[in-house]
């Protein structure tokens, strides 16, 4: 593992919050992809904190796009490199807002056209940069500024969009989900994606201490709990078939929810059994769909 190179490719002095998972993801991505990489980055937290004008944390060529045309810009870069006979890898980076909502049109187009690039979505489950508005990636019952919990609402009323499956349905050769809580696994997936010809997609779970409401030191712990409760599943899909799934001894979803302010309304003034049962049902559905449960021998 080449830590020194990682530090140079994504440098210190960026302005992410202390304990930021997106910053960690950026370091791991470049560590895995190496220096011959061109990064296309849509507007979002990562763009804002890594490139405070006129400075940059990036040690590789980096181009900023709008929210909506990230994949289109990446497509253009790929086409230009092809014409020049160059071999650099192209990585498009976007938050979940840019990926699930605003950039969906261009993302779908680029995948359907089959450009050779890797799209990585750092999924912090809301529009964090603009002040925690809900996105298509916000999980059920999470309180955000546009889905506030209160006397008439339990927070976000819709479940998370299943984007990996949507992109797999485009015929993507490699689609994977990962978590910053498991860095070697994430790096392996990035390496695999950049070395697979065609459009590949990785969605990395990136807990946001500011938006979700927990202390920065807990970023990795919260990421692990999402996997251990079954609310986030780490899997790989090759040509539309799930080939690898991380199995766990599942914990109740309470363990994950209780440590985050965005779910505080589910526990105060008293535990909301009905709503938590619905979230548990989502985890149970994931467990059946992906077969993540490890059965312990008695």
């Amino acid at each position: 593992m080449n830590d020194e190179a990682a530090c140079v490719l994504f440098d210190s002095g960026h302005r992410a919050c202390g304990g930021c998972a997106a910053a960690m993801a950026a370091r791991l991505i470049l560590d895995a992809a190496g220096k011959d990489t061109i990064v296309v980055s849509s507007t979002g937290c990562m763009e804002v904190f890594s490139t405070p004008y006129p400075e940059t944390a990036w040690g590789v060529p980096w181009i900023h796009s709008l929210f909506e045309n990230n994949s289109a810009v990446a497509s253009g870069v790929v086409a230009s490199l092809k014409k020049q006979g160059r071999k650099e890898k192209v990585i498009a980076l976007g938050g979940d807002g840019a990926t699930f909502d605003i950039g969906m049109l261009c993302l779908s187009g680029a995948f359907e056209r089959g450009h050779d690039f890797t799209y990585i979505c750092y999924d912090n489950e809301a529009y964090m940069n603009t002040g925690i508005q809900r996105s298509g990636a916000t999980p059920y019952d999470a309180s955000t500024t546009t889905s506030p919990a209160g006397s008439c609402s339990f927070g976000n009323s819709r479940p998370k969009k299943d984007l990996p499956m949507i992109l797999a349905a485009h015929g993507a050769p490699y689609v994977a989900t990962a978590s910053i809580a498991y860095p070697p696994d994430f790096k392996k997936k990035v390496e695999k994606a950049v070395n697979t010809p065609g459009p590949c997609y990785i969605q990395v779970h990136a807990p946001c201490c500011t938006g979700w409401g927990f202390e920065g030191e807990k970023t990795v712990a919260i990421g692990k709990l999402a996997i251990e409760t079954g609310l986030w599943v780490n899997y790989e899909m090759e040509n539309g078939v799930v080939t690898k799934v991380k199995k766990v001894v599942r914990k109740p979803v309470d363990d994950y929810l209780v440590g985050q302010k965005r779910f505080r309304h589910l526990f105060k003034p008293k535990r909301n059994d009905a709503e938590i049962a619905k979230i548990q049902a989502l985890a149970d559905r994931n467990a059946v769909k992906f077969g993540i449960d490890i059965t312990l021998k008695k």
Partner: peptide, 29 residues
């Protein structure tokens, strides 16, 4: 060194971590 979001932990010849306090935000991860 792997998880530091700042990438501000280095390594000395003995393999021990060496933090760069110029950049450490003190997140505690």
């Amino acid at each position: 060194r792997i998880i530091c979001p700042e990438g501000c932990i280095g390594e000395n010849e003995e393999g021990l971590p060496v933090p760069d306090y110029d950049y450490c935000k003190g997140c505690g991860l």
